[in-house]
Structures are given as structure tokens and as C-alpha cells.
Design a protein around this nucleic acid. Structure first.
Lengths: 128, 128
DNA sequence: CTGTATCCAATAGGATACTG
DNA sequence: CAGTATCCTATTGGATACAG
């Protein structure tokens, strides 16, 4: 009686939140996209720029360097006449694919809901 | 085909990148944590603040309002003498759990690798 | 207890120009 | 082609104070 149902306690806490740690890995807004486009195999810098037109060279370079430093992807310089560089997922990088696939799946569902419900009850107002 | 293997073309592109859309949903650094802590059931504002001490009231409120507007969670005001508010995942919100679980799993693996390989080449952090 | 408002610092990210 | 450097703006997030 002293303690009625204490609604519910914290779920198994993510022990010191590896969540936050991992999120810092794909913290960049474009990071998941980069990993996604590398999931089918190595790609060159220019190809990635073409894959993700909205990303700037600076940001792409930054994310690439960052992910390389964290062991998510590797960087290989091809000694060709016009220098070309290839990036690819490491073993660790491939680990992200399930998570990204899950995120993509959610994105699809959200789109479906928005298309189905229309935007009658939410997001219709440019909050001022 | 005269053109040798064109390394590989873009993988099935995330059609206009729902990835980015979804990432904008959990764009906030704390969003995954909030969803995580709500995954076991509804919780009150103060409980969430206690769950995630590093988050400020402003940010928590902001993420909460944002997720509510997007239909990820619901907000229920309890008409008690000291006003209390409960938040819980909606059906849509529960969809995020697999993705977050996958992210948490990666976080664990990264930690293991850091502990196993030591800090020989990167991230030289004395774990303990 | 549950927020909200204001101020402020840090950072991400875009545009452009330039180099190897 | 593959970056790098610089500048600039927008956004995020924290601290504090205050309100219902």
C-alpha cells in the first residue's frame, strides 16, 4: 500500500547511454545518407557528391574524414592521372546498415501517414 | 558493353531520401533517448528530466512538443492538485523502437571495439 | 510540478574561391 | 578530380529567471 503502482520505472536504461555515443557517430545530418550510398559498394568522392546534390563539398569532406577516423569507412587513393579517391564501408560501417534500414522504413511509414491523413491536423500551421 | 563494370551505381536510392526526413524527426540529440525512456510506458515530465539529467527543461519541452506535433507521442494533462503531465509513445512512436534498438546495438559494438583494440590508432581515450 | 521566455555560446552547414 | 580555407548564417542547446 505504501507504494501503489509507481506507474513504471525507467526502462532498462541504455547504460550510460550508448545511444548518445552512437548518435554522435551519425550526428551529421548527412551521415546516414553517406553510409546508405556506400552500402552497395565503394564510391568515389564525385559520385557521392552527385548522389547527394544538396551536400556541399566541405560538409561531405568533413563527414568523410570523420567517419574514416572512427573506422566506419576507409579511404583509398587511386594513383591515376586525374587523382581519384574511393570510399567504402568497413566491417564496422556495415553494422550501421540495419539501423539505417530501420530508419528508412520509418521514413516511408511517416510519408504514408502524411499522404493518407493529409496535413489536416498537424503541420498545417507555420507556427508563429 | 564497352564500359567495363561501372564500379557500382547508386544503391536503391532512398527515393528523395526519406532518410533525411526521418532523421529530421530524431534530429535532436536527445530525441532517441526520449523515445527510449518512453518505450516502457508513459512517463511524466519530471521523470524524464530525472532520466536524462543532462537535458535542460527548455530542450526537453522543445523535443516533447516537436514529437507531439509529429504524432510520435501523446501528451495527457492529469487534473491533479499539483498539475502533472504524462507523455507516452503513440503507435507511430513505437515504430521507432527497432531503429533505436539497432542504434543502441551499434553503440555497444563500438564500445566493445574501443575496449578490445585498445586505442592504438584512434580515439586514444583511457577508458578507465 | 510543468512549463515558458530571454539571453548566450557552440556548432553545423552553405557559398565561394582557391590549390595539388 | 578531390579537396581545403575562409566567411557567414541558421539552428541547437544550456542557464537562468519567471509564470500558471
Amino acid at each position: 500500500m505504501a507504494l501503489k503502482l509507481r506507474r513504471n520505472r525507467a526502462p532498462e536504461p541504455p547504460e550510460a547511454c550508448p545511444l548518445s555515443e552512437c548518435m554522435s557517430l551519425l550526428g551529421g545530418a548527412w551521415t546516414p545518407n553517406i553510409i546508405w550510398y556506400l552500402s552497395a559498394g565503394p564510391r568515389r568522392f564525385g559520385e557521392l557528391r552527385h548522389d547527394i546534390p544538396a551536400i556541399s563539398a566541405k560538409v561531405l569532406t568533413g563527414r568523410l574524414r570523420d567517419l574514416e577516423a572512427k573506422g566506419v569507412l576507409w579511404r583509398r587513393v587511386m594513383p591515376t592521372s586525374p587523382p581519384s579517391v574511393e570510399y567504402g564501408l568497413t566491417d564496422l560501417g556495415t553494422e550501421f546498415q540495419p539501423a539505417i534500414a530501420a530508419i528508412v522504413a520509418i521514413g516511408h511509414k511517416i510519408k504514408q501517414r502524411q499522404a493518407a491523413h493529409g496535413q489536416s491536423d498537424d503541420m498545417a500551421m507555420p507556427a508563429s
